[in-house]
Design a protein around this nucleic acid. Structure first.
Lengths: 252, 252
DNA sequence: GTATATAATTTCCTAATAGGAAAAGGGGTT
DNA sequence: AACCCCTTTTCCTATTAGGAAATTATATAC
């Protein structure tokens, strides 16, 4: 069984250019050609088409960057979900009671994408994270909360397609251990990430469902040294309560 | 002089699909083919490549929507600018003194793109606008503020490439009138939009420059009936002050 | 459960495109 | 003015794209 060649070679090349420009804004043709391993004429022709459709923009010094169409797409993307606005008051309430970083994520293509982030008001040590980045399901609190909602087929497919790569020495890389962990999450509704993604960071999260549909998850993240037993219980209670409120709100 | 065929037919088709999915999320192959006037096999092949590069995602019912890559791009895009975060405290302060809708926009490809929006806290009648949408330069307060900063060549190019299409009966469609208006803006630093974009909506804005570089603009928008002479002066003063603060902050 | 309708996918061939070598054009610098 | 470096155009063929038709999967009716 050999994998067939993908269709749309220009499209793949264009994506390569876009990826490069996303990480390296304001680059001239030459740099883009070099980085994407294409000749100047080819790169130029693709860039001109990308310019035409608004995916990139070019300044007067002939440097290229991502274009305005991207923002328009992103906006529509959030519209589709429109979760951010809906959940904001509840997450803000959670924020008030637990002054730590709160994330909201949605499930897309077996990953969690951060779509909102609320920062602690008074804590000076904060997490560095950003809306737009993704987290694997197996090694984050939000991810495991979501995984726990998968049915057997979905879970089997997930495991098959995803190698359990360690990010820290605490990452769960054994599927039996992961099974056990998910079992626990199912019984309590609360998921934890004990430095599994990033050293010193502890997260407590829960999934968000709209009826039967898994939407995503939210979580509280904090440096582990701030996590006393009492505080942990307080967060768990607050997260559980927020989950109830959010799922109530999602039904309308 | 004939215009040459654009390179990358697949790319153009892919963009058509993306545009359609941006406006019509969760559509099956058939609908996409119909809307984009392509055959099923072609559409499918492009969708599969888009899937591969993360530009679209497909659910188990085989409905397609924009993919997570878009959010990642958008995030990088904002990083490039990183204006939103930087300006937020100042715009919030402006918000507090003038309880009306505040917009922040950046200049991209001779258009203003809204990148942030602050809603009035107490006013119940609000503007319907969204982050991500664009406004022409000639018919918005932010746009005219930016146009007033263009040099002669830039301005000439702009006029040549942009027809002054009326949006309301107040839109300036005469370039001499626009010249005069820009002259006034240059002398005061404040731009107005007197129902030129949308009936009943009045905006007061100013440009944002970082040294010599035109970044974008911000504005206060409100229903015209709330605009007394006194309130207008109050807004002008607040906008001028905010402009100073922001440009100070932009230098670092 | 089977028939029927509808949509998704694969196959396969040729019309159309893509890509790059080479040459030409632009712009800034010594 | 000559040079260098980067961008853009030209032009030809190796490669890809696109669609008709057949096939398979999926949903709906009976």
């Amino acid at each position: 069984m050999e994998k067939s060649k993908p269709y749309g070679t220009v499209l793949l090349k264009a994506a390569k250019i876009m990826d490069y420009l996303a990480d390296n804004p304001n680059k001239p043709l030459q740099d883009i050609s070099r980085a994407t391993e294409m000749t100047n004429p080819t790169t130029l022709k693709i860039l001109e088409t990308l310019l035409l459709i608004g995916y990139v923009s070019r300044d007067k010094n002939k440097n290229y960057r991502l274009g305005s169409k991207i923002i328009r797409y992103a906006n529509q993307y959030f519209d589709q979900i429109d979760l951010v606005e809906l959940t904001l008051p509840y997450l803000e309430k959670l924020q008030k009671s637990i002054d730590e970083t709160i994330h909201l994520g949605v499930l897309v293509d077996n990953e969690i994408i951060y779509v909102n982030k609320l920062e602690p008001k008074y804590q000076t040590i904060r997490m560095s994270s950003k809306v737009g980045i993704t987290r694997p399901l197996y090694s984050s609190a939000m991810g495991k909360a979501v995984l726990a909602e998968f049915n057997e087929t979905e879970y089997a497919n997930y495991l098959e397609s995803t190698p359990l790569v360690p990010h820290t020495e605490h990452t769960i890389t054994n599927s039996l251990k992961l099974d056990a962990e998910l079992q626990k999450i199912r019984s309590t509704g609360i998921a934890f990430d004990d430095e599994e993604m990033e050293k010193d960071i502890y997260c407590i999260g829960a999934s968000l469902k709209k009826g039967d549909q898994i939407i995503g998850a939210f979580s509280v993240s904090l440096p582990k040294y701030r996590l006393t037993a009492d505080f942990k219980n307080q967060i768990i209670r607050a997260v559980a309560e927020t989950k109830d409120e959010l799922e109530q709100a999602l039904i309308h």
